[in-house]
Design a protein around this nucleic acid. Structure first.
Length: 104
DNA sequence: GGCGTGACTTATA
DNA sequence: ATATAAGCCACGC
């Protein structure tokens, strides 16, 4: 809970069900707005896949990463739809499910 | 402190 | 609009 990585894990776990967050937003909340890549890397090591809903973390476009180490975009989509998230083409409907948290 | 790596983001063509 | 390039910063060694 001190490193950026650990912070990312916490933030992702704090994402409400049926909502998604961008890597950049997670990075911002984690304390480093420019470390969106590290967010993905943090989930890549994914120490707690059972407690870290990586599928709720998407790119700023609402799309999932090309290297999702979880089950693929198909699994991602199913997971979010199972939580009530709607899709816009191949991406999440961020207009409705994108979590807008400020740095406050 | 340096080097390599990377699930992103932004800019330019 | 898509494709490609560069920048970015933190982790691990």
């Amino acid at each position: 809970m001190s490193n950026f990585f650990d912070k990312v894990y916490v933030v992702v776990q704090q994402i409400p069900k049926g909502m998604v967050m961008n890597y950049g937003t997670v990075a911002m909340i984690a304390g480093s707005p420019r470390c969106a890549r590290q967010v993905g890397y943090a989930l890549h090591v994914n120490p707690d896949p059972d407690t870290i809903p990586c599928h709720r973390v998407v790119m700023k476009d609402g799309g999932l990463s090309a290297a999702f180490a979880f089950g693929g975009a198909a699994e991602h989509r199913l997971r979010l739809e199972a939580e009530g998230v709607t899709f816009k083409g191949d991406n999440v409907d961020m207009k409705k499910h994108l979590v807008c948290i400020s740095i406050k």
